[in-house]
Write a protein that binds this DNA or RNA. Sequence first.
DNA 1: GTTAGCAGCGTTTTT
DNA 2: CGCTGCTAAC
Length: 785
Amino acid sequence: MNLFENENADPSSSSENRIISAEEPLPRYLEGLNPPQREAVETLDGPVLILAGAGTGKTKALTSRMAHILQTRRAWPSQILAVTFTNKAAQEMRDRVSQMVGGRVEGMPWLGTFHSICAKILRYHAELAGLNANFTILDRDDQERLLKQLISAANIDEKKFPAKSLAATINRWKDQGWLPEDVPKRWRGEFNGRGLALYEEYQERLTSFNAADFGDLILRVVDIFRRQHDVLARYQHRFRYILVDEYQDTNVAQYLWLRLLAQAHRNVCCVGDDDQSIYAWRGADVNNILQFESNFPGSKVIRLEQNYRSTTHILGAASGLIDRNVGRLGKTLWTDKAQGEKVRLIGHWEGQDEARWICSEAENLTRETGMRRSYEYDEMAILVRASFQMREIEDRLMAIGLPYRVVGGPRFYERREVRDAIAYFRFAVSSQNDLAFERIINVPKRGVGEATLQRIHLEARDRRVSLSEAASQLCRESKITGKAAVGIRKLLGRQAVWAGMIRDGGRAHIEVAGQILEESGLPEMWTNTKTPDAPARLENLKELVKALEEFENIQGLLEHVALNFENVQRSQEQGILLLTLHSAKGLEFPVVFLPGWEEGVFPSQRALEEEGDPGLEEERRLAYVGITRSMEICSVSFASARFVFGRWRTQDPSRFIGELPVKHIEDMTPPGLSPGFGFQAARSSQLPVDRSFDSDVYSSPGFQRMARRVAERGRFGTAGFSRRRLESSSSAKLEAGDRVFHQKFGYGTVKSSSASSLSVAFDKSGDKKVLASYVERVDNDGPVA
DNA sequence: GTTAGCAGCGTTTTT
DNA sequence: CGCTGCTAAC
């Protein structure tokens, strides 16, 4: 494919060219836009920042803008650069634009994530970065493994200086747009004085592996643009219009990349919301959006402030909270929606009570009352700060059998068995891929251990060859013998065959992949493994081969895997969504529960300790994101005592509770537990608070006594006891086919079991997920009381 | 070279 | 409490 087809053709000279005139009816893609949205769509020349508050129709504005550019023939689809952060967002944009222009957009080659677009550019100019066009993209796991090697090679104590933290440091440097030589002096000594040296070494290793990590994809392209003016000029000329989504999440390197590309036409349009900047901890720099006007002189700022999502009470509560942050661009969101219900606030004695309340409340909401409509479970979401909070809630959801689904958790391509299989594919494509070789050389076990691997490494280094060549040489010279030698020879033999099959392309790639996988021995290995998770892993391997159907060849899958790390939509199951606040960004739900609003949990202790005030503000933005997810009903809750990480802790309600404007809140906290919102804020915030709700219930001796009693009840009382008893009664592990009894669903047959939960087909209530500890085994003979 | 047992730890997540 | 990853013993 020629990247620059149509480069010099002017789309407006095309015979299909139409300029919209005043007499013509409004084109479909401009219908239903409010005035600022319309302005955002039609202000095409010069830099534009669209400040789009939560729920103000930013995607609509962005996609309409794209449709407008296309329909008025200002640019070919291939001349628009549209960047998002996630593949999901890119896909959505693609769908919506083609819908708007009636499916006439053949494709937008430059609509994608920062990383996929940079990978594409980098592949075309790989040689300018010292790479081959077929370089591999390292993920977090590969990166850490490599750094670990470097750290131990440098004789650094990995306990004191873990690879994770070096990875974080190097990634942050790359986010800043710093090549090793750009790292400012005062940072160079990070990591026990060796930071810069390790960074340099790491970069050398990457290049010698013909690999790039995620940060490199951006950084190396920026570097090429800076050094090669002709290359840059070509892209600058190419991209007549640039659009960027979620601009508040960009890092410095991404900003530099954009600025370079935007220099020619200056038609850059960024959409974002500084109040929803929640990714500073992974390198996002909110200054990009705060300083847009000075970074792009002559720019126009358009505010989208009409919210189409939430009731006035919800919007009011969210606005009042975010108002406490300093250094915002500032927006005044408004809505013409109904007042709706006030945001509910409720305190509980302990975490389990909170989980119980949420679940029973969710159940209540499915029934209509005189005051409101009824809600389906899949209209509800529970948003937590951290995933450890999910367990307790999930337990309860399972116990009473509400349908639910969890977002997040282990990702498909991140699972060990899948990564192993991918490594086999990578290795099959190229025996030179040292990272893949290292991963699979002893998986499944071939008798190649630490010592043998060490020898292979040394040999490879001495002769400056790849690991597989070195291994092959060592076997030939009988320097590796026995089981290891047999294993290596066999593997290398297979590799040659695999590589041949891939190269000549005679057979369908799915067949080839199937054969590689089968011959890798991985399926056999998992079949023979007796751990409870083995069947699921085997299943994942099958799924991987199935996934290949979507791609034209194995290389296609490998590129996809590298850049699509997100979760595969696993089940179509419906139900209450349980997810973190971070992964809820961009979503909306009629009903939202926000549990765990307690000091130390939310705002998180670590954010406060490590980041201070900026950290607190980011937590507050997170709270803002949480509230603004809700359309009609929003419940904030906290517990006074919580069993976390094996010990009981008494909890203070979050300072954010005190920051919610009283007039939009309905406090449902039972008497005796009610703090009155505002008391924490009075202590921890310098901002004025409503003193009428001020009280110090939580630090009073009475409360402390109560908290202790709650704590003890949790540990020794009925809840803890009954749970343990149930567990012991079903001590023998339940397996598929076993008959069980559940308090609520009655009798059923186990379909499958995992570590703690069961999938059971109940005779009366159908298929459910339940906790193993909530069912009792019954004999096949019949029901047992 | 493999595996069991135990110390240590325990935000947020996409690419 | 439950998981991960390393050390010490087969």
